[in-house]
């Protein structure tokens, strides 16, 4: 085992201090060390998008970062978007538009879409499809997801 490193990272507004081996991926750190299992792990090589989180506000693949690299930074996971009594408008729209079936890919879609809709409050269908091209859904196809993003954009503009 290699040396342990101290990591101070703010996740969903809470400061965590942990010791990690440098090889621990951010995705595993979130799930195993912090118990935040909303971040899902699919392919572990940057293709599926299920593990997407926000790193200092930007969407990143948490399977392609080491936890040690988050020292002094901010991470937002799906747990940080909203909760069951107070869903984020994008979560609410996914629910209403039936944009998920098994739900495995959903956290990655939601975290990808938060900065996208902040930057593009009124996106075209093409822009939406482009924005989610790094997230794979194997249940349903993308039609309902695109509709949910349009609905979410409406909600967020209102």
């Amino acid at each position: 085992m290699s040396d342990l490193f101290n990591v101070n990272v703010t996740v969903n507004g809470t400061l965590y201090e942990r010791e990690v081996e440098p090889r621990i991926l951010l995705s595993d750190f979130l799930r195993h060390d912090l118990g935040l299992t909303g971040t899902h792990v699919g392919c572990e090589h940057g293709v599926c998008g299920a593990c997407t989180v926000l790193f200092d506000g930007n969407p990143v693949r948490s399977c392609l970062m080491f936890a040690v690299q988050t020292n002094g930074h901010e991470v937002t996971t799906v747990e940080g978007l909203g909760d069951i009594d107070d869903l984020h408008p994008i979560q609410q729209a996914f629910w209403e538009a039936h944009a998920l079936q098994c739900g495995f890919c959903t956290p990655g879609f939601l975290t990808t879409l938060v900065p996208f809709l902040e930057e593009n409050p009124d996106p075209s269908e093409e822009e939406i499809r482009n924005a989610i091209s790094g997230n794979l859904c194997r249940c349903t196809g993308y039609q309902h997801i695109v509709e949910a993003v349009q609905l979410a954009a409406e909600k967020m503009r209102a």
Binding site: P59, V60, R61, L64, M65, T112, F116, S133, G134
Partner: peptide
């Protein structure tokens, strides 16, 4: 180049 998430990093 790649996807939004990859381009962030």
């Amino acid at each position: 180049i790649a996807t939004t998430q990859i381009r962030s990093r």
